[in-house]
Design a protein around this nucleic acid. Sequence first.
RNA 1: GCCUGGGUGGCGGAACUGGUAGACGCAAGGGACUUAAAAUCCCUCGGUCCUCGCGGCUGUGCGGGUUCGACUCCCGCCCCAGGCACCA
Length: 866
Amino acid sequence: MVETDMNRKYDPRVIEEKWQRCWEDHKTFKVTEDPKKKKYYLLEMFPYPSGKIHIGHVRNYTIGDVVARFKRMRGFNVLHPMGWDSFGMPAENAAIEKGIHPAKWTNENIEEMKKQLKRMGFSYDWDRELSTCEPFYYKWEQLYFLWMYEKGLAYKKGSSVNWCPKCSTVLANEQVEQGLCWRCHSEVQENYLEQWFFRITQYVDDLLEYCDRLGDGWPERVLTMQKNWIGKSYGLEVDFPMADSDEAIKVFTTRQDTLFGATFMLIAAEHPLVMKLAKGKPCEKAAMEFVEKVKKQDRMMRTSDYYEKEGVFLDAYCLNPLTDQKMPIYAANFVLADYGTGCVMAVPTHDQRDFEFAKKYSLPLIVVIQNPEMTLDAETMEEAYVDEGVLVNSGQFNGMNNMKALDAMADYLESLGRGKRTVQYRLRDWGISRQRYWGAPIPIIYCDKCGTVPVPEADLPVVLPLDVEIKGEGGSPLARHKSFVETSCPSCKGPARRETDTMDTFVESSWYFDRFCSPDYDQKPGLDRKKMDYWLPVDQYIGGIEHAILHLLYSRFYTRVLKEFGVLGVDEPFANLLTQGMVVKETMRCKEHGYLFPHEVKEGKCERCSREVVIGKTEKMSKSLKNVIDPDYLIEKYGADTARMFCLFASPPEKDLEWSDQGVEGSFRFLGRVWRIVEDYLDDVKDIKPFAGKDDLEGELKDLRRKTHQTIKKVTDDVDERFHFNTAISAVMELVNVLYQVKRPEKGDARSLSVIKDALETVVILLAPFVPHITEELWEKMGHRDPLVDAAWPAYDPAAASEEEITIVIQVNGKLRGRLVVPAGESDDKIKELALKDEKTGKFLEGKKPVKVVYVPKKLVNIVIR
RNA sequence: GCCUGGGUGGCGGAACUGGUAGACGCAAGGGACUUAAAAUCCCUCGGUCCUCGCGGCUGUGCGGGUUCGACUCCCGCCCCAGGCACCA
């Protein structure tokens, strides 16, 4: 059959669908454990099924797919799964707004997004697909909860939460906007609720310590963020005796060196001690009002600027344990109740907050660290002195450097029995209770007689009932669901109530990567240890920087818990982490119609009113700014390969990707260029074997062969070691450019054509991980029966890649003055000699004698003159 | 305020341990093909000066320094992005 021009044109739609079907039919990406092969577990952060994939997903998953396909070609047994983080609030909101059941909404979204992911040609083993909202999944999470409860790793305690009285539900911090509920704008209250917690603090030192061991595989900044979040600080607990009783106030400080300068005491407003001290005194009323005010202030804190430091005197005194000086006690709005002991010794001379407070309430100041540059005077100071210096007014410690005195003073206080070295952390236990419907039920039953009773393992899963009424108000739908709530006590069989809180969705995402290793395993404990041992840890994890702290920290914690249960055997879940940048695009707005979608702009004018469009800042793509690109549209117009190509080529993965329509066009053009050069040679090279590399070549063909092997090396290094796909692709572009430059050999010139064929095949193979469809098609056209996806990654031949001539740069005093082309094997002495004799360079020597000649082998000669 | 990144042509970005700054792509300009256009293929492309050369000077946020030689290392400063933010 004669091929017409039509079916020889690059038509992405046809070939992409063809190969996607082929991969699906052959289950190409299905993997099983194979002890003979080296495993490679590649994972991208699974998506929340919000409806459609966005460009951020396209980028994230394309990066992962390149690595997965590359590793596969390198002979690894690659696990590359995909699933759905399918519990969460948007589903509940959709239910409230549109009256669709969360389950229906979620599953429809999954359906749609799965179609889109398949259309991108990602190499997932879909047989391992999981969805966290299925009982089949969360059943095991409930089991781990029971085990954690047993070990005291899960516990219940009272804690304060953001509470919206109208919606009668708890709000996450990010759902409180300027102290108001994000949905109904009622004033958010502080509410004290019994909540479930995971004791993450039990592993705090281990989590911190391993930050350093993860060193090579994780980005530095993620580790610093985690370390800061954990916030370990070494200090001292010091007792401050009350002036008129035997009791004492305990404070935590890291600055015992300033203790002689502590002139008053501060207590967090919410601290019970505040009302205890004020009780029955004239200040009681003022104290109570103050506490109420601060509680409200606290809600505003996140969104407002610094608020003023305020306090109220509690008409009580304690004593400085070293000077016995009387210290007035204040309740203050800026002291944190849940850090340290909730009480703070105030040193106004050396702490800016304390300084401001002291000025406001005219409290005494004593300088205890003297500034070596300029003598400090407590009377005239305008701000606290917070740098290093020499101790003064500090008894036997006078004259010491304050940093050096830290240990000495700790020893002294410990010897007096008034202090004790301790460690404090910023990290708190992880509150996992959510007063919401669309989440995994917490497997606990409350009985009036027996108290808190865990659901017996045999009764798991506690299935989330689907027949609920979901309204915006009136609290959790679960709490209103009679047949769910009303149950019998597992221990006394009497009437009992179920826990109606569900778990934070971060719990599901803390172990999904484990479940991917044995997604169908239906025996206790839901994870098959043999498979865990084969696949874990994840060799490469890829996702957005927005999860740098919470998701990654929780996953690290959960891994430790599961290890303790013997469910798996690794210390850390993710050996290597790549955090990819955001996708950004310029914003466009019209004076009349506000932000505009790209399709609403026609030739720089607003489609509706023909006004000039103003190009705004480049920002992260978001629906509200309308600077979005629809992946479906891209695929429709250019195909998945072009979309992938652009995401990879425009910038390295860790940087932000700036969207450019012209850049997409360029990527499409390049693929067309590859397609045409292969098509062009196809008839001539179809039956020719690629050049095998024994006989000598000359001229252009030798250059082409050299370039071919240099490209293999460059692409291999860029992809394998650095994940720099943009430079890898430009290397292939260079090779393609050379192919276009080469003079076309005669039809019968088999030897020359074999070199061309080798170059063409190399282009196709090297591009395979990036653009799998077009390359698979071209591979087939070139006469291959076995699919490219299973082809071996080429090895480069160092001999073929080596240059026979090298260019030596000649510098005079570090300035480029000339070039020298010499045979690669030329001796150093000869090169130096040639450089010194060089005519052009000679002009710049001004007849002077070189003082020195620097020679960098195979690179340059620098002649130094005075 | 503190902690991370990062400032390179008109633009996105290269330059891996100090050794030819600007690979590759986009945009722009020119040429070939075409009746014409599109598509395609080829060439030019940091600035500046002139004697247009295989040319000189200059140029990687700014100011210093180290070095034979600095986009790269050190010190000081400016700007941008992100994270944390009263943690005692």
